[in-house]
Simulated assay, not measured.
Amino acid sequence: MDDTDTQLLRLMQRNADTSHAELGRQVGLSATGVHKRLKRLRESGVIKRTTVVLDRAKLGLDLMCFLKVNFKNNLASPNPDELHEALRTLPEVLECYTLTGTNDAIVKVAVRDHVALREFLRRFSEAQGIIDRVETCIVLEELRDGNDYAVRADE
């Protein structure tokens, strides 16, 4: 990756709808040059996919939570297939990561309200026979939202 690739990735993270012509204007390339670079970045796996970011509040998902999860056997990781299958059945789950430290996993969830949260937690505990304890943390304010990575050219 060079500086131009880095600039393109930064611009695409902000708005993937930007036309190739506009991206080219901003980085000093033709639209065709931008297309070729973005194609190479996709083929190499640097760009995994292009997606749409929805407004959670406008969808009525007013409650964002993080669940700190401890598995029944905290000495060993859960069966990944079992965990993936349980999470697949729960559309409220936005992200899930296994961790080091005092919790085994953290799960990011968006729901409509506290009633929907209670129902989700019931389904979550039923779907996850491997869970020992869940601590729910409700987000009071989003100070920063996004997945913009600090992109740098190869040095």
Rank of each mutant, 00 (worst) to 15 (best):
D3E: 15
D5H: 03
D5A: 11
L8C: 06
L9N: 00
R10Y: 01
R10I: 08
L11H: 07
M12A: 10
Q13P: 00
N15E: 12
N15T: 05
D17E: 15
D17I: 05
S19C: 02
H20D: 14
E22I: 06
G24R: 09
R25V: 04
Q26W: 01
V27C: 06
G28Y: 00
L29T: 03
L29C: 03
L29A: 12
L29Q: 09
S30A: 02
S30I: 07
S30Y: 08
A31F: 02
T32L: 06
G33Q: 02
G33C: 02
V34F: 01
H35F: 07
K36S: 13
L38W: 05
L38H: 07
K39Y: 05
R40E: 05
R42M: 09
S44L: 09
S44K: 15
G45M: 07
V46N: 08
I47P: 06
K48R: 12
T51Q: 10
V52A: 07
V53C: 06
V53R: 14
L54F: 08
R56A: 05
R56P: 00
L59P: 05
L59H: 12
M64P: 04
C65P: 00
F66G: 10
F66S: 09
N70C: 09
K72H: 06
K72R: 14
N73F: 07
N74K: 13
N74T: 05
N74V: 04
L75K: 13
L75M: 10
A76S: 09
A76R: 15
S77Q: 14
S77M: 12
P78N: 04
N79C: 06
D81P: 01
E82K: 09
H84W: 03
H84A: 15
H84I: 07
E85W: 07
A86E: 08
A86N: 07
L87M: 14
L87Y: 06
T89V: 11
T89G: 09
L90C: 11
P91C: 02
E92D: 14
V93F: 03
L94W: 04
L94E: 13
L94M: 13
E95D: 12
E95R: 15
E95T: 04
E95V: 03
C96F: 07
C96I: 10
Y97T: 11
L99E: 13
T100A: 14
G101Y: 00
G101W: 01
N103T: 14
A105H: 02
I106L: 07
I106S: 11
K108A: 03
V109T: 11
A110C: 10
V111S: 11
D113N: 11
D113W: 03
D113C: 01
A116S: 12
L117G: 10
E119P: 02
E119A: 13
F120H: 03
R122E: 15
R122L: 05
R123A: 04
R123M: 05
S125A: 12
S125N: 14
E126H: 13
E126C: 08
Q128M: 14
D132I: 07
D132H: 06
V134L: 10
V134F: 14
E135D: 12
T136S: 10
T136L: 08
I138H: 05
L140Q: 13
L140W: 09
L143E: 14
L143F: 02
D145Q: 15
N147R: 05
N147C: 04
N147E: 14
D148A: 10
R152A: 09
